[in-house]
Computed example of a mutant assay.
Amino acid sequence: MAVPAEVPVLEVEGLSHRFGERKALDGVSFAIPAGRFVALLGLNGAGKTTLFSLITRLYNNQTGGIRVFGVDMRRHPARALARIGVVFQQPTLDPDLTVLQNLRYHGGLHGLSSKRITESTREELTRIGLADRADERVRSLSGGQRRRVEIARALLHRPDLLLLDEPTVGLDIELRRQVLDHVHALCRERGLAVLWATHLIDEAWADDGVVVLHRGRVLAAGPVAELRAEADGVSLGEAFGRLTAAAAPRGGAP
């Protein structure tokens, strides 16, 4: 379905969330347009996983709003979630099933027809270069190959928004690069919008968007180049360091 360019694929507005007395998110707001790779940068404990849990309805948002193509997540969760694909931080493939069985099972959960599952599975496995290993058990694949299969699985129902929560954890430098290259190619070739949560500064490329999340609050949101320019042209890592240092509690407590 075509979406007007002015309608964000994902819009988060004034989102806050508590676990008892602890505020995990505090007035988080940002938007992602179609075809944009946005890195959600934050240290461990920044609130990235809580944010993903709210967007995917693992938690109900307590205040604020989440809209996917203008569809309110709380009022119409099925319509909104149908447009989203998700790769969680922890691996979720069944290692004792084959690659094909994992994908077919996921397609069935989404209510896809057998014909569509077959077509989408063939297309996605060819895209990630693993069509010849469709009948092998997942446990025989490398860590990078498993991540690519998880991305292929998340794309079976042809979503317009892909969420990835720390997807390169445990991968070496070369495998991280391969996964990043693959997801950026999806943005270019399909117009897919991506929210990529990470604590690794180098996973945000120069022409990406970035949302800096720290202690549950958004400190900056926009193009990487803009964030660097506002910090006098320093590297993204230095700009990130300045922002988080300025937001630290008085007294220097971490």
Rank of each mutant, 00 (worst) to 15 (best):
R242L: 11
L161E: 00
R122I: 03
S113C: 11
A225V: 12
C187Y: 13
L164M: 15
I201K: 04
S120A: 15
L109E: 07
H199G: 12
L236V: 11
G237V: 12
R153Y: 03
H214V: 08
D208V: 12
T198Y: 02
L155A: 00
L213A: 13
L219M: 13
W205Q: 14
L161G: 10
A197Y: 01
R228Q: 15
L155I: 03
V194M: 01
A204F: 13
A134G: 04
A225H: 06
G222E: 10
R228P: 09
R176P: 01
E166C: 13
L155Q: 00
A193Y: 02
R242F: 11
L180E: 10
R146S: 09
F240A: 10
S120M: 12
S142K: 07
E174L: 14
I173L: 14
V183F: 06
L164N: 05
A193N: 05
H199D: 12
V212E: 07
R177V: 12
V234F: 04
E119M: 10
R190P: 05
T198I: 07
V169D: 08
L195M: 15
E136Y: 14
H157W: 01
V212C: 07
C187H: 10
A239M: 04
R147I: 07
H199T: 12
L180G: 09
G144C: 08
L186Q: 10
R190N: 08
Q178C: 00
D232T: 09
S113L: 12
T121Y: 04
L200I: 15
P159C: 07
